[in-house]
């Protein structure tokens, strides 16, 4: 990964800016602190949701994704994302359009109607890879002013960050390391738990198809983390955040059980260890609240 890349186009997607803007504010702030400038992608849309639109109609999903990629190409910048859905869509679309010229031609015919073209000149990066590989663990460590001592963290990867490996390129999907490394940098302890790599239950239209059933997966995930002694869960995906955080409010409404198990996006956990406040990271306006030992 190039050290000199200092400007990125931030592909916001839907859930980050429209439901959990604290993720957006925190990520921009931390990146800026390390000299990484964020440029806005004017006119970007939904990625569109890979499991949903990819399930409905590949030939609609692809041109909408390609249009988003084209916006970054026009800016001459690589992209970063804060949602595995956006990562899933944009990175996979980029991969498929590069691999299959015939579908690229078909997609560009659709985009040509309004004067855009997918060329294949940008790259889709996940924000946690920028933290891990571009900023780097050593530089992150230097800025940790409030190490998260005695905090046990359950890591949740979501699905489309790691899988399919042949597209994502982050090594084994069964023994990942990036989030574990980031947790370690904060001074917290990463705890293993039952079915750590299990999906949050939201993707592929499942949350929409059958919400109670989808919440049941999420409930299992939270219970497993709590039973392993975790104080919070950290993840790299705005859509998982919605399911894991707001889902806890839905569980309370539907079943009268409120776990209030804190959910944090990766940059928010790092932000805590860097001394950013709960308020500036938007962690005071979500369903789950931060306990005193995390928020001090």
């Amino acid at each position: 990964m190039s050290e000199e890349t200092k400007e990125y186009a931030y592909f916001l997607g839907c859930i980050t800016p429209n439901r959990y803007p604290g993720i957006e504010a925190t990520t921009k702030k931390i990146f800026k602190g390390f000299g990484i400038e964020t440029k806005e992608m004017v006119g970007a849309s939904c990625c569109p949701a890979p499991g949903v639109f990819g399930s409905f109609d590949m030939y609609t999903w692809l041109p909408v994704a390609a249009r988003n990629l084209a916006i970054a190409e026009e800016m001459g910048l690589e992209i970063y994302v804060t949602c595995n859905g956006c990562y899933g869509s944009l990175q996979e679309a980029d991969h498929l359009l590069k691999e299959h010229p015939k579908v690229k031609e078909r997609v560009n015919e659709v985009l040509s109607k309004f004067g855009r073209e997918y060329k294949g000149t940008t790259k889709v990066n996940h924000s946690i890879v920028i933290l891990h590989d571009v900023i780097g663990l050593d530089r992150l460590k230097e800025r940790i002013t409030k190490p998260l001592k005695d905090i046990n963290v359950a890591v949740h990867y979501g699905c489309h960050f790691l899988k399919p490996r042949e597209v994502r390129g982050h090594g084994s999907s069964e023994t990942p390391y990036i989030l574990e490394d980031l947790v370690k940098v904060t001074g917290a302890k990463e705890v293993d738990y039952k079915d750590k790599l299990m999906c949050c239950g939201a993707g592929g239209g499942n949350r929409t198809a059958d919400t109670p059933q989808s919440l049941e997966w999420m409930r299992q995930k939270i219970v497993n983390a709590i039973e392993a002694g975790a104080d919070c869960m950290v993840h790299p995906c705005a859509f998982c955040h919605l399911q894991l955080d707001r889902g806890q409010a839905e569980l309370e409404k539907g079943y009268g059980v409120f776990f209030n198990f804190p959910i944090l996006f990766a940059t928010q956990l790092i932000g805590l260890a860097m001394g950013l406040s709960i308020k500036e990271m938007g962690l005071d306006i979500q369903t789950t609240t931060m306990p005193e030992k995390l928020a001090k």
Binding site: C159, H160, P164, G204, G205
Partner: peptide
């Protein structure tokens, strides 16, 4: 419609079926 497209089976299929 209950598949979340998590790709777990895709990664594990011993016959290389591109399941998801």
């Amino acid at each position: 419609w209950f598949c979340t497209t998590c790709f777990t089976c895709y990664e594990r299929c011993p016959k290389g079926v591109k399941t998801t």
